[in-house]
């Protein structure tokens, strides 16, 4: 009997690519397709700051050449967003209602910038940097900019600041404790971080509310709740990630903060799996649901999801805590949870 398996993976990050590779290794006959809304092929996201700073070229961002996919017989559909999933019919809808059928599906859609509700009204003035498109767009802008406000924070914001200090920019860091990600900071922790930033010549403002942001000629004017006025060329926001699940909610696939999966990374549909920064898993040790952080964890989950899908029933083990020293404060960089 000919096999008609079509494994579709949504998302072209570390989780999606690892899953595709594993599926191809273990099943030579099935069709394997990766669909991603990004038009640029698989790249190191963590190298984006270096790329923006002009330290590395576009080629150095790429994890592997495009030709690899041809060799491996993995179909890449780049620049195509999945708009909707119909899990009962086993079809995906792309833009203009174009349909793609699948026999098994892996969701590896990652996350996008989180904007806490209290910041939403300033969103139009914020610059975000999570993907290649953002980087290309802001690269020339950033080269010119002198004064930059960073709204933070999260781990990426600290990486970003490191890059900026190397570029000799004038930096303001607005640190909101209960919006720090993935943990809320105590005032002692915030104090430690801000003093370590100050040492590097960065002006840190802890828990200073933003009263207004307005555009004035070619500058942005940020007014704080305590009456300070800061003029800047850019306001960059880094407040963590939220899983990309908007197009999945309501499809029948269970979601909460992320896509709910069991320890095999299987969703409530037997033929749909989720992995990486979009998957939410219950962890009996923590007595809580958590969502993984970082590309290594994402790749590990991609592998696990692929093996489970192929019937190996591989269990994802809770990753060990990875503590990163952030200006003297230990921050867990392995997962985030809500409480």
């Amino acid at each position: 009997m000919p096999k008609n398996d079509h494994y579709v993976i949504i998302g072209n990050g570390p989780a999606g690519n690892k899953a595709a590779d594993r599926l191809r290794d273990r099943d030579k006959e099935a069709r394997v397709t990766i669909i991603s809304d990004e038009a640029f092929s698989f790249y190191y996201r963590y190298k984006l700051p270096d790329f923006i700073a002009g330290r590395i070229s576009e080629d150095a961002l790429k994890v592997r050449p495009y030709t690899i996919y041809k060799e491996k017989n993995i179909r890449l559909r780049l620049g195509q967003r999945v708009e909707r999933i119909d899990p009962d019919e086993k079809v995906l809808y792309l833009k203009h209602m174009k349909k793609v059928g699948y026999t098994k599906l892996i969701l590896a859609t990652g996350g996008s910038p989180r904007v806490p509700p209290s910041f939403i009204r300033f969103m139009e003035y914020f610059t975000f940097m999570t993907n290649y498109n953002d980087a290309v767009r802001i690269r020339p802008e950033l080269q010119k900019a002198k004064d930059i406000i960073v709204i933070g924070g999260d781990l990426i914001s600290l990486r970003f600041i490191k890059m900026l200090t190397g570029m000799k920019k004038n930096i303001y860091f607005i640190l909101t404790r209960n919006c720090f990600w993935p943990i809320e900071l105590t005032s002692r922790m915030a104090g430690k971080i801000s003093s370590s930033l100050e040492k590097k010549g960065i002006k840190a403002l802890v828990d200073t509310p933003i009263a207004a942001i307005t555009r004035q000629k070619n500058k942005l004017l940020l007014e704080t709740g305590d009456g300070q006025k800061i003029r800047a060329d850019m306001i960059c926001s880094f407040l963590g990630l939220k899983p990309n699940i908007d197009f999945i909610v309501g499809s029948g696939i269970d979601t909460e903060k992320g896509i709910l999966v069991n320890e095999y990374l299987q969703t409530n549909y037997a033929d749909i799996y989720a992995c990486g920064e979009c998957a939410q898993i219950y962890n009996p040790k923590l007595k809580d649901y958590w969502i993984s952080i970082g590309s290594e964890n994402a790749a590990l989950q991609g592998e696990t999801a692929a093996l489970s899908l192929l019937g190996a029933h591989k269990v994802i083990k809770p990753v060990p805590k990875n503590l990163l020293n952030v200006g003297g404060v230990s921050v867990n960089t392995s997962w985030w949870k809500q409480f």
Binding site: Y282, P284, K287, F339
Partner: peptide, 24 residues
């Protein structure tokens, strides 16, 4: 205690069932 969603064939389609040993 934490719960998980369980599928039902008719409305309300999902119920919450407690997860054992998950009290906090």
């Amino acid at each position: 205690e934490r719960t998980r969603l369980k599928y039902l064939a008719e409305p309300p389609y999902r119920v919450a069932v407690p997860i054992e040993n998950s009290e906090f």
